[in-house]
């Protein structure tokens, strides 16, 4: 009951956030100087009629919203226009239908451009995150459990080093290692691999993913290990852990039933924050191990 209510609250808030972002982004680009049609096609030889046609193509001939012809420079227009026939509401309606429009830059549907690149990023981040979370949590738990022993020191030093390595540098080092071991260094699949049977295609993609995923995993594993270790050590010094011990629970049971859940809280927060950052682009990894991914889209 409580959980459902909390969930509904969260979802409602995220809807509001998304709405806010949509409204903000829409008007931001209308307030900023420069006509998208002009900015996109930087060719002074274009005729006025051609530009006008482009404006029609991108829907820029319509009023921005009721009462405003344009926002930069501010031009007051008619307030009696059908609101559904203004740029803002057409944009909102298209969004709802999953129609993202046409890119000013590439003149191709935005959805297509995103899809081909987002898939790569999601693969990289998904595999990297899952691996680094698993390894980080396991290392962190061991380090905290065996605190101040050699296991702990090894885990902490390794993690600190992994976390403080510059990502691009680690990627370069791994490229050297990869080239010595015959791993593919760039691209998402070998040329012509689409002719192969499905299984071999997957193996090929997996081989191409090894280096970027490894880079990603090493860096984030360090962070997760350190957070897990310190958080679990805090929890293990709590009174309720003493209670659990007095209850005759084994060390494993104490870790599993009383410590882990409580110690995961800070980690979950950081993972969520990292996901936000990384979906926006694992730029450095992608820049070194050349792959066309969404990250470079924003670069």
């Amino acid at each position: 009951m409580n959980r459902t209510r909390a969930l509904i609250k969260k979802i409602t808030w995220s809807i509001f956030t998304i709405l806010f972002v949509i409204v903000l982004n829409f008007f931001l680009f209308r307030v900023l100087p420069g006509d998208p049609a002009r900015a996109g096609i930087r060719d002074p030889r274009l005729k006025k009629e051609a530009v006008e046609m482009l404006r029609v193509r991108f829907g820029l001939d319509k009023q921005v919203i009721n009462c405003f012809e344009s926002l930069n420079p501010i031009k007051v227009g008619s307030c009696t226009v059908n609101p559904l026939d203004t740029q803002f509401f057409i944009y909102a309606r298209n969004l709802l239908q999953g129609e993202l429009g046409i890119s000013y830059h590439t003149n191709r549907p935005v959805a297509d451009v995103l899809a081909e690149r987002l898939w790569n990023t999601v693969l990289l981040i998904g595999a990297g995150q899952i691996l680094s979370i698993i390894i980080g949590v396991v290392f962190g738990v061991f380090a905290a459990w065996k605190a101040r022993t050699s296991i702990d020191y090894v885990a902490v030093i390794t993690s600190l080093m992994a976390w403080s390595l510059p990502t691009f540098w680690l990627a370069i080092i791994l490229l050297f290692w990869g080239s010595n071991n015959g791993l593919p260094l760039a691209g998402k699949a070998s040329p012509g691999s689409s002719a192969l049977p499905l299984l071999q295609q997957w193996v090929d993609i997996a081989r191409h993913m090894i280096l970027p995923t490894l880079t990603y995993t090493i860096v984030y594993m360090g962070e997760y290990t350190l957070i897990m270790r310190s958080s679990l050590m805090d929890v293990l010094s709590e009174d309720y852990i003493l209670t659990a011990k007095a209850k005759g629970l084994s060390t494993f049971q104490i870790l599993k039933d009383h410590a882990l859940k409580n110690a995961m809280l800070p980690l979950v927060t950081v993972i969520a924050i990292n996901l936000g950052f990384t979906v926006a682009g694992a730029i450095q990894i992608e820049a070194v191990i050349f792959l066309a991914r969404a990250g470079q889209r924003d670069f």
């Binding site: 009174d239 309720y240 003493l242 209670t243 659990a244 007095a246 009383h258 409580n262």
Partner: peptide
């Protein structure tokens, strides 16, 4: 335990 405030998970 003394001070059961924190003795429960």
């Amino acid at each position: 335990f003394q001070g059961a405030m924190n003795a429960l998970n």
